[in-house]
């Protein structure tokens, strides 16, 4: 709710110009000019992880419910989309993806139930149950992976309305449109009064309950919505990026990675998920180039990998001490300096 325009010069046109330019770049320029390597190795994982981060940010950043089960919901989304595509031939891809999101929402709702009684660390530990249970169930019951001997299945071919999306650009556009639509949805949600309810639950649950914010309903709805978004991110991760579906890719490491994306990017901001995901995806690539150049011949590949990890960890710690509000806060400070 805004009562006074924060900046009289920022008309709708100038305010939305950077976003419009970015979308134009992403939808038109990238597919036309970017190399396959950039799309396959950077942009596809970036989009999938951004979307997962966005989903988790709704839950953790806005509503204050810490979850360590994100990868499980990604797995649910990926496997649900695979089974829908595989078993129901005629289902259009967007519908499968939507239904996969709904499946993840249902699972998220079940694992969200403890949030009605548990808070903070205790809730985080209870979401670990989702992480372990889902991975176990997907490995244990062959039906989920269509009884594939290795447990690794290749993703079905992607097409919408008869147009094949199997090429690099096609998969990129599929991931980009899905991410853009969901981001718009989340943006509209968090600026609405419902978004204020989420923050009220996070900031002071007791006060929220006493003044009549529907705390329990809000928590469950956010668990479902967040899981649905993360599930769709899982489907994109498997279908568009990896082109394979396997439970092992959705382990606890992935859950932590998504949590780091949200924390580094900036809790309770929409763009934070994108900034965090960009850092998490691009930084290791740059780092491996750098260590490759600096320590070439000095250390073997295993040691290089270790150096990378140590450096990455150190950067995260330094970063959180210097700016606990994440990359989003840094970006705000920079833009404010330039617009003044």
């Amino acid at each position: 709710m805004t009562f006074v325009a924060d900046n009289p010069l920022a008309t709708p046109l100038t305010r939305h110009l950077p976003l419009a330019a970015g979308l134009l770049l992403a939808f038109v320029a990238v597919p036309a000019f970017a190399s396959d390597y950039v799309i396959e190795a950077i942009l596809l994982p970036f989009l999938a992880l951004s979307l997962a981060g966005l989903g988790l940010n709704l839950l953790t950043g806005y509503t204050g419910q810490v979850s360590l089960g994100s990868a499980a919901f990604m797995a649910v989304g990926a496997f649900a989309a695979f089974n829908l595509e595989h078993r129901i031939d005629w289902l259009p891809l967007p519908v499968s993806i939507l239904l996969a999101g709904l499946t993840a929402a249902a699972v998220g709702l079940v694992f969200g139930l403890p949030s009605l009684r548990l808070r903070g660390f205790y809730l985080a530990v209870s979401t670990l149950a989702a992480q372990f249970f889902v991975q176990w169930a997907l490995t244990k019951f062959g039906w989920f992976s269509n009884y594939s001997a290795s447990g690794i299945i290749s993703a079905p071919s992607l097409h919408v309305f008869g147009i094949s999306l199997d090429g690099t650009a096609g998969r990129y556009l599929f991931a980009l449109s899905t991410t853009a639509l969901i981001t718009l949805f989340v943006h509209r949600l968090v600026i609405s009064p419902i978004g204020a309810n989420l923050i009220a639950v996070r900031d002071n649950e007791t006060a929220a309950r006493v003044i009549g914010v529907p705390v329990l309903r809000t928590k469950l709805a956010v668990f479902a919505l967040s899981s649905a978004i993360i599930g769709i991110a899982g489907a994109i991760w498997a279908f568009a990026y990896l082109r394979t579906v396997e439970p092992a890719g959705f382990n606890l490491d992935r859950s932590f990675q998504i949590l780091f994306i949200v924390i580094i990017g900036g809790l309770a901001t929409v763009r934070g998920a994108f900034l965090g995901a960009a850092l998490i995806v691009i930084f290791p690539l740059l780092l491996s180039r750098f260590t490759g150049l600096a320590f070439d011949g000095v250390a073997d590949a295993g040691v290089l990998k270790l150096i990378e990890r140590i450096f990455f960890g150190a950067v995260i710690i330094a970063f959180l001490i210097a700016e606990p509000n994440g990359l989003s806060a840094i970006l705000s400070r920079i833009t404010r300096r330039f617009t003044r």
Partner: peptide
């Protein structure tokens, strides 16, 4: 109060029921 919200949103929270 809800420190992450504006004054207006804090007050409006009293109407969310």
């Amino acid at each position: 109060l809800f420190p992450g919200l504006s004054v207006a949103d804090n007050i409006a929270a009293g109407l969310s029921f």
